[in-house]
């Protein structure tokens, strides 16, 4: 059970030690605690907008959706929490291209989300609400649960069977699922998908995607190459 609480400890240790100006030992310590090391040397996490609680929550969620196995390291080691931090701290998280004129009555699902909240605010509220619910049911925050319990909680959210103080658990679940999947599959330039791990898993070649001279040659045969990303051409 001990390793299940690593995400939070890892974050808190990293933050505290980094604050004291001792980043290198923190990195070493983190590496020692990490069950499946990331392909590159791990760095202490640094976030632009996530709080310690939020980082721990997203780490636990990313590692539940994307566990370490023979295919890829776990989600947090792929940078998915860094991805989420950048997304929520950036224009999209701040509500770019999102219409915020009131009033905000509850509509039908087919009318789309009618929230006042920006994605940043929605995730902040959602993390609090899920933790409040797991405190009630397990007396622990979500990130302190073991893997099986986290899976159970996510399934309850997905099925709309968690009590989030009036908020729709399915809406929060789908947003959480979507942003973790984006972090897993998006170009690594956004902070996730470290080492192009998900692209290698699928067999997606990434860039430059110029196939005019390949499409006939590879017809009916899997075109498998080490994937390349935006950074590789920059």
């Amino acid at each position: 059970m001990a390793d299940e609480t690593i995400p939070r400890r890892r974050f808190l240790t990293g933050a505290a030690v980094a604050g004291a100006g001792l980043a290198a030992p923190a990195a070493a310590q983190t590496a020692a605690q990490t069950a499946t090391p990331a392909p590159s040397a791990p760095e202490p996490p640094a976030y632009t907008t996530l709080s310690a609680n939020e980082a721990a929550f997203f780490t636990a969620a990313a590692d539940t959706f994307i566990p370490a196995d023979e295919l890829t390291p776990r989600g947090s080691d792929l940078g998915i929490v860094v991805f989420i931090d950048r997304q929520l701290g950036g224009a999209w998280g701040g509500g770019a291209k999102y219409y915020r004129g009131g009033p905000f009555p509850k509509g039908k699902p087919e009318q789309g989300p009618q929230s006042h909240l920006t994605p940043r605010e929605m995730f902040a509220a959602g993390v609090d609400a899920v933790n409040a619910w797991t405190q009630k049911t397990y007396q622990k925050d979500f990130d302190r649960l073991d893997a099986a319990q986290r899976d159970t909680v996510l399934k309850a959210l997905e099925a709309g069977k968690a009590d989030l103080a009036g908020a729709d658990p399915r809406t929060f679940f789908e947003s959480l699922y979507q942003i973790v999947m984006e972090g897993f599959f998006a170009d690594p330039i956004h902070g996730g998908n470290k080492g192009k791990a998900s692209w290698a898993m699928l067999g997606f070649p990434g860039l430059p995607a110029l196939y005019a001279d390949k499409i006939d040659k590879w017809r009916g045969k899997a075109y498998v190459v080490p994937p390349l990303s935006i950074q590789d051409f920059s």
Partner: peptide, 20 residues
Amino acid sequence: PGIRDELRFSARLDMIQDAS
């Protein structure tokens, strides 16, 4: 290489009308 960015264009709708 920037045009090959699924997140920016497909998910975040970089070239699409600004609903705000």
